[in-house]
């Protein structure tokens, strides 16, 4: 603890002085940064940490991919011939593989988003949550960095699923642009569930409750939507539910990109005249939902970081 000590100490005192003007704004987590890092520096630090943690848990990485892969393979093999007819009534001329890939992409997003809340609970349990609050890092940047790491992982996993789907015989009619679009829709879709799992984490403060709570929703959401069969082939009450189910909007938007035509089943618009008529309403609904649940999660997070003081 000698040598360059003096320099480091002086530098940090200067930084502190410079920061004082900005700290008032910074208390709520949105102000400018006074530490050695910029806002994006803080984002990057946390992005790296959460990616490192993801890599340290290959089991979680693999399992959250394997379940959707099992669905993809089993559904196409078992229901492919039967479902093909129903699918062709809705969207003529496509294989069940092509029909299913967007749904599995959304399933990957759901499964991976659950781990976001689990990571937060772990951080609270092992003290890292509080430890990070004591650092001068911008608090918004801390959670942006964490979410960015999760979104990055989800994007990679969706890309893998699309690749696997193509290997099994699915066809992305819109090509590379479509693949990028499907990944983007999947990420947009994942955000509301990321926010939801974080909110669940902050409310339960318990790892198992978070996993069970989020998993409980996963299958009803998937099956009561246009994910596996066209809505026309499903009972009336499911059609009604699917109208309010975010999965329908995510899947239909991704599927419109997949087959390069408007296959949105629950909202009918003709703003653009083409594929975008199927994508835009889904994107709009998901963006709204992201903002809503994101707001709830941010509110709970800021409450958790300021503790219950009068």
């Amino acid at each position: 603890m000698s040598g360059s000590d003096g320099d480091g100490a002086v530098a940090s005192a200067d930084g502190a002085t410079a920061a004082t003007d900005e700290t008032r704004a910074a208390t709520d987590g949105r102000g400018p940064v006074g530490s050695g890092n910029s806002f994006f520096g803080d984002v990057w630090v946390n992005f790296k940490r959460w990616n490192l943690k993801a890599v340290r848990n290959p089991f979680v990485l693999v399992v959250s991919l394997v379940q959707p892969i099992i669905f993809l393979v089993l559904f196409t093999e078992v229901f492919g011939t039967v479902a093909g007819g129903a699918v062709n009534q809705g969207i003529p001329g496509i294989s069940y593989e092509t029909y299913l890939v967007p749904a599995i992409a959304v399933q990957v997003a759901l499964a991976a988003a659950i781990t976001s809340g689990v990571g937060l609970v772990n951080d609270i349990e092992n003290g890292m949550f509080e430890k990070v609050l004591v650092t001068p890092m911008n608090r918004t940047a801390v959670f942006v960095g964490k979410t960015a790491a999760e979104v990055f992982r989800i994007a990679v996993q969706i890309a893998i699923i699309i690749g696997l789907g193509v290997a099994l015989g699915a066809e992305v009619v819109s090509g590379v642009v479509g693949v990028v679009g499907i990944v983007a829709v999947g990420v947009l879709f994942s955000l509301w569930f990321v926010a939801f799992s974080n909110a669940l984490a902050l409310l339960t403060r318990d790892q198992e409750s978070t996993i069970i709570g989020a998993n409980l929703l996963q299958f009803p959401l998937l099956f009561l939507s246009s994910a596996f069969l066209p809505l026309g082939a499903l009972p009336g009450w499911i059609q009604t539910f699917a109208r309010f189910n975010p999965v329908t909007y995510g899947v239909d938007a991704a599927r419109s990109l997949m087959v390069d035509r408007d296959v949105m089943t629950v909202i009918d618009v003709s703003w653009f005249g083409g594929t975008l008529d199927g994508v835009a309403p889904g994107v709009a609904v998901l963006a709204g939902l992201d903002l809503l649940l994101g707001g709830v999660a941010v509110y709970l997070l800021s409450r958790a970081s300021s503790s219950d003081v009068k």
Binding site: T17, A19, E22, T23, A26, T27, G34, S35, V134, T135
Partner: peptide, 11 residues
């Protein structure tokens, strides 16, 4: 209250 970040940097 008003300078929490400066404190976080120096403790």
């Amino acid at each position: 209250r008003s300078e929490p970040r400066a404190i976080r940097e120096t403790i």
